[in-house]
Amino acid sequence: KKIKIKIKVYNPETKEVLELEIEVSEEEAEELAKKLAEELEKKGYKIEEVEI
């Protein structure tokens, strides 16, 4: 079964909002969402919402 992940991120420095969407297997979904959120935060983005 495929799971659709939508991530909306906001960069306070540039006032930019990015929306990302990807489909992955159920097993990958939670781990991938967690890794993406961590990487984006390292780059200065503030995570507003992660929906699985």
Rank of each mutant, 00 (worst) to 15 (best):
I3T: 12
E49H: 08
K35M: 07
V17D: 05
E38W: 07
K42L: 06
E49G: 12
A29F: 03
N11C: 12
K34I: 12
E51K: 12
A33V: 15
E28Q: 12
I7N: 00
S25A: 15
K15D: 11
E27S: 13
L18I: 11
K2S: 07
I3D: 03
E21A: 12
E31L: 10
N11K: 11
A33H: 03
K34S: 05
I5F: 03
K4W: 10
E41I: 13
P12W: 06
N11F: 04
I3G: 10
I7F: 15
P12R: 07
E41W: 04
E31Y: 10
V17K: 13
A33M: 14
E39M: 08
E49C: 14
A37Q: 12
E27P: 14
E41A: 11
K1D: 06
L18D: 02
E51G: 03
E30T: 06
I5V: 04
K46Y: 12
I3H: 09
E51F: 11
E19P: 03
A37H: 03
E48C: 15
K6G: 02
E31V: 10
K6W: 04
E39H: 05
K42F: 02
E48D: 03
E41N: 04
I5Y: 02
K8L: 01
E28V: 09
K8S: 04
E31Q: 10
I3M: 14
E30Q: 07
L40M: 03
A33W: 08
I3V: 14
K4M: 04
V17A: 09
L18P: 00
Y10P: 00
L32S: 07
L40H: 01
E21R: 14
K6Q: 03
I52V: 06
Y10M: 11
K6V: 04
V9K: 00
V9G: 15
E23G: 09
E23N: 14
E51M: 15
N11R: 03
K34A: 13
K4I: 10
A29V: 11
A37P: 02
K8C: 03
I52D: 01
I47P: 11
E13N: 09
L18K: 08
L20Y: 14
K43E: 09
G44F: 01
P12C: 09
A29M: 03
E39V: 06
L40V: 02
I47F: 01
K34Q: 08
E48L: 07
L32W: 05
E19W: 13
I47K: 00
L40D: 00
Y45C: 15
L36A: 02
K34F: 05
I47Q: 01
K43G: 05
L20H: 04
Y10W: 08
T14N: 12
V24A: 09
K1A: 08
K1V: 07
E48P: 01
I5N: 00
